[in-house]
Design a protein around this nucleic acid. Sequence first.
DNA 1: CTGTTATTTGAGCATAGACTCTAATTTGAG
DNA 2: CTCAAATTAGAGTCTATGCTCAAATAACAG
Lengths: 186, 186
Amino acid sequence: MRYKAGLETRDKILQATRKLIASEGMDGTTIKAICDQAGVLPGSFYNLFDSKEQAILSVVRQAIDAVDPDPDHLGTDTLSDLVEAYIEFVTEQGDLARVYIRLAVSGSANNPEIWGRTMRHHQGRVARFAAAISREHPLMSELETERRAETLVTALNGVTLHRVMDPGFDVSVHARALLTDALAGV
Amino acid sequence: MRYKAGLETRDKILQATRKLIASEGMDGTTIKAICDQAGVLPGSFYNLFDSKEQAILSVVRQAIDAVDPDPDHLGTDTLSDLVEAYIEFVTEQGDLARVYIRLAVSGSANNPEIWGRTMRHHQGRVARFAAAISREHPLMSELETERRAETLVTALNGVTLHRVMDPGFDVSVHARALLTDALAGV
DNA sequence: CTGTTATTTGAGCATAGACTCTAATTTGAG
DNA sequence: CTCAAATTAGAGTCTATGCTCAAATAACAG
């Protein structure tokens, strides 16, 4: 892939794949469906991707990146910043949020590649949350900080999980409540 | 199906289906895999079930029933009882917990039957949690009670979601933390 | 323009999956 | 024991899916 046309086609295919994973799931996303949606024929698909799995992995990477735009930036985010960023991700990028949740369930089950990625991402995320908590509560033990961060991150994913099922579910209310509760007793 | 042999075969098939959904997911669960695992041939399967979907739905029902053994019993459970029961379910019945989480993601997406069941179950569960909160905090407004119940139930599902990915994840610690936090600021 | 390389086309292959059918076997009520 | 009904066996059908390939077309560096 070196010409402009190829790059555009690649993009159309990835968009189609993303939309399909979000609506049909990983297994329900077929080559035919991707090609129809992208307005492309199988030959073109296989000119740009080695396999269906490769296209799916690209979308998986997009989703993970979208959750945590800058995972190494152990910066000055407050816990509230992190939660608000997550709320925005879930509400503004519905398709990617769906992909993100499906990752954990369908993807991780039988694909070690996806499982590894997801777990590493989760750990990084917990570390980031823990750092924020630690900044706001310097006296809290490291163990306690870590535990609170992990509880919060998994709980937030639960909220997203429910949102994926029920589009009317108000993510922001429940996510903010989790944030408040998480540090209420400190 | 009226003879004893048929009932036993039916049972073997459902066990196999349950195990397979837990390990491979709904789409990964094929007739051949079910039959191999159950030690049965396709002809027997279709003598007892109309379709693959019917077998899956039976297991789905099992999973939902196992989460909330007695959903109409708006009894005297405390919130802690409910959380502990859920912890036990997740840790003691790993396969069904996996099925339960997959329900929400893979199942609900394209199967209105499963989606409806899951949503109804969720509502019932939230109501049960809300009733327990209300009993323990009679002065709390109904709206607030409901919201706290819903946050807690979805957060607990998030903990289960993570446990499904990482068997080493300590459900009880995080679930109990959610319980404590949920009412810490009251 | 030209020639090389990238891209697209679309028919086609191989495999796997859901499900069917008929003949044989087993069950158990009377 | 008997016989109708239930169950099992297992080969076979049909469709969908992932992927390939050779030929035709488009892109673009020089």
